[in-house]
């Protein structure tokens, strides 16, 4: 069977490659940010600020590639679903990376030793869960797997529970007020990161479509 529109396919592949690149940076940096926060190692803060700039450049570039493809190629079916989905998830990726950077920046604000053991444990679990959720969202995207949405929605409930527990712990007043204030924000950042992963997996449901697999 002849394959047509190869140039268009290359444009789509280039867009996919950039999306995957953004996903990759996010997953990597999320783990680094949690590490920085818990170890007090603030060396990554500068690195993440650099990455933030890269993402801020990728975002408009992707938007313009997608607009161009929609304008010039009159996409339909899976091509259209892909381009529309990219337009919708790229802002989520950009915002999520900002949250990651905000988490890392807290490593500058207090010493890891200032955290109560329970706070530390909860943050560690939230960090692991957020990283896991993002890996699952990326996997769902890569495989165009609609079932990721259900899995992520379930895991997000775990995240919400951890968030509540952490807020409860912070409200108990065991730590200094400045540290408590910072940690309230951190709790919120992880919780939002979980929501963004859920949103992305939901978008994959539309992206995946309902095409039956090809019969051989």
């Amino acid at each position: 069977m002849a394959e047509f529109r190869q140039e268009f396919q290359q444009e789509l592949d280039a867009i996919e490659a950039r999306v995957i690149e953004m996903f990759g940076m996010l997953a990597e940096d999320l783990t680094r940010a949690t590490d920085a926060l818990l170890t007090g190692n603030n060396e990554v803060v500068k690195l993440l600020a650099e990455r933030e700039k890269t993402i801020e450049e990728l975002y408009p570039e992707l938007e313009s590639l997608v607009s161009r493809a929609i304008l010039m190629q009159a996409p339909v079916a899976s091509d259209l679903r892909f381009l529309l989905t990219v337009l919708r998830i790229v802002p989520e990726l950009e915002r999520s990376h900002s949250l990651v950077e905000h988490i890392a920046r807290r490593a500058d604000h207090f010493l890891a030793a200032d955290l109560s053991p329970r706070t530390r444990g909860l943050v560690e679990r939230m960090g692991e869960l957020a990283s896991d959720m993002w890996r699952q969202a990326i996997d769902a995207w890569y495989r165009r797997d609609a079932s990721g949405a259900d899995v992520l929605a379930e895991r997000d409930e775990e995240m919400d529970e951890l968030h509540s527990s952490l807020i409860g712990e912070l409200a108990s007043g065991g730590m200094s007020i400045p540290v408590t204030m910072e940690m309230t924000l951190v709790a919120r950042f992880y919780e939002r990161l979980g929501d963004h992963a859920v949103n992305i997996a939901s978008r994959v449901v539309y992206l995946a479509g309902s095409q039956q697999p090809e019969e051989n």
Binding site: V76, A77, L80, R81, G209, S210, Q211, Q212, P213, E214
Partner: peptide
């Protein structure tokens, strides 16, 4: 045109 079910479509 948005979500064809058959791969040929």
């Amino acid at each position: 045109f948005e979500d064809p079910h058959d791969p040929r479509t």
